[in-house]
Write a protein that binds this DNA or RNA. Structure first.
Lengths: 348, 348
DNA sequence: ATCTTCGTTGCACTCGTGTGCAAGCGTGCA
DNA sequence: TGCACGCTTGCACACGAGTGCAACGAAGAT
């Protein structure tokens, strides 16, 4: 029962006081080398590990970060979670995972997060209600949103540079000679979706394209497949479709090919957003704007920990640029594509 | 600063002792209705939430379950994690997530799991070293392995019924008239891989097939693609390939089609294991043995919580059956396929 | 030899909550 | 009316560790 060893046991065996044991495990505390040796030895012999729970109680910091995720079908979120767990572990923090129910009653999570004294909270979902973020912020818990922004002040956020990303998609499709455009939307209320749609339409409008078809895919594959059926059976079928994320783009492609018998990109070009793993699978070879998971995690972790550890008090709003990775799901323009590190990238 | 409200504040406002506050939030404690009302009112007014950390300290139970995952590329694991988080939340537990490094030095996690006083631990990976499981078990922490078994006693495990699953694959491929078989292996040391391979070979041997080609895919897509290149460029190319999981089967199919120009299933039949989301995507339509996430999570959670809460002391070894879902990545036998709940299932 | 100084140590209090124990109170029965 | 019983309640201790404070000892300075 190694789990039941306390500092009292170690102190007794080492012949010192309990304070000495505590100081031995507290970096920077005043302790004689000889005492440290005795304590370390006794601790090892007994298999002693300081109880993080008790430490949290007195320190007022749990070194736990609550992470709330919505759904995991979109490979972007598992990747994010994986990186996040490693990054936080490396920095001495741990990750308390909460799954928000799809209906968005994530408010029920607030008391639980509070109860566990999480030092910070990361909301990783484009669709979570921002009420949770505001509540936590009001309670004094630093919050970082990933893949979403909010109007509430004091809340940090890390997103892709959706505006420039969506503009690049518009430029890329225009350069490819497309004429009839469509947008398959994610959840309309999500800021990420709004930014992508507005920037895409805006750039097209600058180029004189006023009409952009629109279908709501609700960030789901069923929604995207349905959108494909509706868009691609129109008489004035679009020849270029921008899906709000890869997860939907893949379902869109599958529906176009297998349900409607169309060829990609000959009959219709498809572009996604995220550049997740499956986008690279040869069956899709999806042209997509990358959302750099590593960079986003680094920034999110730093923003959160800087606030938790008091190095900074202001909220940080970060927009991370990502390349438009060109593969073969969309007609390629004659110029503007460069190969960088083995990837074809749109650089007009 | 709603987070700084303690039971002392609530007691003062309600005009009762701190004990009364505690009892108000302890199910089954002796407390008068009127007192409860006063406490509840004061608590609500102050935004009081019992501190789970302090509660854990005194109760000796943290109501946290450590979950260790290996990698998240294989969609099975995100799905598992998602279900697990919801199930544990529903039962009043929370999930402390640990990402094990791919090299398998997951032993560094042991002290951390111990320090946080996790009530139990779930190891969700086919490839994690069982040393961690044995250490936790020795420390008196209930352990459940998912997707892996171990020889160590006292450790519960939940796996698919790999033996019957792999046998079904062999039967299915034999019924489809295939002659030359190959197996793309996962990590050789994983019990899941061993079970699947042995059962597959065993069943084929019973049918008089002694030779089964083998390539190691190491549970990675790169490995599977390489395996495809090696197997499918042989003079005696196999006409039926069983991949140890869907994640590899998908990469195998992509390599076969796009790198080698083969048709599936005309030139080669492919069968996977797990029946993850992408297996259903029309581009793959992968025939695969299902690994029922919901059932596995239910069993794992019950097995763990029954031990934690003292209802049971023995370890439980569960093998969950899963159907062989027939799609079009493998030649279909003339008979033996039934449609159940909209799925084509192999039922010889 | 005496005083000062600095590093080290232990005492005791603290974090926020659960709970055994005994006292308090009200009620029902004889 | 008196007694016993049961439900409530508060006191006090416990959980396991961090830390300010004062005392202690050794070493250096005068």
């Amino acid at each position: 029962m190694a789990g039941r060893v306390t500092s009292v046991d170690v102190a007794a065996r080492a012949g010192v006081s309990r304070s000495a044991v505590s100081r031995c495990f507290t970096p920077g505390a005043s302790i004689a080398p000889e005492t440290r040796r005795k304590v370390t030895e006794a601790a090892k012999a007994l298999g002693y590990r300081p109880n993080a729970i008790a430490r949290s109680l007195i320190a007022g910091r749990s070194r736990m970060i609550a992470v709330v995720v919505g759904y995991m079908q979109n490979q972007f979120y598992p990747d994010l979670l994986d990186r996040l767990a490693r990054e936080l572990q490396a920095r001495g923090y741990h990750l308390l995972l909460f799954a928000a129910s799809p209906e968005g009653d994530s408010d029920a999570l607030f008391p639980q997060i509070l109860a566990y004294q999480a030092d910070g909270i990361i909301l990783a979902s484009a669709t979570l209600s921002s009420a949770l973020a505001d509540e936590c912020n009001a309670a004094g818990i630093p919050v970082v949103l990933i893949n979403r922004t909010t109007d509430g002040t004091g809340v940090s956020s890390v997103t892709a540079d959706n505006v420039n990303g969506a503009r690049a998609v518009a430029d890329f499709l225009l350069a490819g000679g497309h004429r009839r455009f469509a947008y398959v939307a994610g959840t309309a209320a999500s800021s990420t979706n709004q930014d992508r749609e507005a920037a895409f339409r805006g750039r097209l409008a600058e180029a004189g394209i006023g009409e952009v078809l629109r279908e709501d895919g609700g960030y789901s594959q069923e929604g995207a497949a349905e959108a494909a059926r509706r868009l691609l059976t129109r008489r004035d079928r679009p020849d270029a479709v921008f899906c709000a994320n890869d997860h939907m783009a893949i379902a869109f492609m599958d529906a176009a090919r297998h349900a409607l018998g169309l060829r990609i990109p000959q009959d219709v070009s498809v572009v996604g957003y995220d550049d997740v793993g499956p986008a690279r699978w040869p069956s899709y070879a999806l042209t997509s704007v990358e959302q750099p998971v590593e960079a986003m995690v680094d920034i999110a972790a730093s923003a959160l920990l800087d606030r938790i550890e008091g190095r900074e008090t202001a909220a940080r709003i970060a927009r991370v640029p990502g390349a438009l990775v060109v593969r073969s799901s969309a007609r390629r323009p004659a110029a503007g594509i460069m190969t960088i590190d083995g990837r074809d990238v749109w650089t007009p």
